[in-house]
Design a protein around this nucleic acid. Structure first.
Lengths: 142, 142
DNA sequence: CTCGTGATTGACGCTTACGTAAACGTAAAG
DNA sequence: CTTTACGTTTACGTAAGCGTCAATCACGAG
């Protein structure tokens, strides 16, 4: 009762409730459950309740980063699944390497796009500030 | 009849038909018209037919780049509109500068996300290739 | 026992970004 | 004139990614 805004905290420091994760990453419970529905998260169940481990927490972080990058959940699924792929057989590994190549090209294209856009924004900004200058000196002259 | 896959070409080299733009940027007519519906494109009309000028073509390029970056069409609209904003009054300019700042932070966040992801992909790739090595040397030993 | 708090599972709704016909106009070619 | 190629509008369909109830369960405190 002493502290305010209390979020129910789990006893075990290695696990999290759905609400804790939601608060930490600033998403809704609905969103987290939705990702589970899509197979992106697989929390433990204690009875009916979801219990999230470090692995799930990391994956949620990766998912959200993927979203910031504008990937679809399907794409994110393939990316995130690569992180904890079992060594497996040769075919698997080759496929995985191919996937990595594909994703890398996409990401590199995006970075080029970002750099171009940043440059053009800088250009617009320069013009904008120049306009402000002339506008203010004109006002002074008045 | 001599050449195949002919796309109807406009007489005026400074303008484009909707099909030409669609072919060049590899999008559908529907998409281009949709962007117009959303106010992102404003082609000339000759009678009922759309005629696209250099300005429209550039904007379409910007729109598609925005899409690759994962921006929504609404966000893209504000970005693209900045490029040909009239000098205008001081308030406008200040607002524009503020918008530019916002977009830049978003883009810089995205670039950080991309760099992190690329690094982690490289890590996965290394593990992956190491696994391939051991798997192949094991096969040789057999 | 009851209440409050947080959890659960449906299930329907909504927005974005188009896809996909359907029905029609038009201009040049055969 | 008819076909063909290109264009138009209108409108319904859809997939993704959640929002938003509603009904229910579990559990510790009072």
């Amino acid at each position: 009762m002493g502290s305010m805004h209390n979020i129910q905290v789990t006893a075990d420091p290695q696990t999290w409730t759905i609400a804790e994760l939601a608060a930490e990453y600033d998403v809704t419970l609905r969103t987290i459950r939705f990702y589970e529905d899509k197979g992106l998260l697989t929390p433990e169940r204690r009875g009916t309740v979801r219990v999230y481990h470090a692995r799930d927490k990391v994956r949620l972080g990766l998912i959200l980063r993927g979203k910031r990058l504008g990937f679809s959940l399907d794409q994110i699924a393939t990316i995130v699944d690569m992180y904890d792929a079992e060594p497996g057989e040769e075919g698997q590994l080759v496929y995985l390497l191919h996937q990595i190549g594909t994703r890398r090209s996409e990401l590199e294209q995006r970075r080029r796009d970002i750099d171009e856009t940043l440059e053009e924004l800088a250009e617009v900004e320069r013009r904008c500030q120049a306009d402000l200058e002339t506008l203010r000196s004109a006002t002074v002259v008045d």
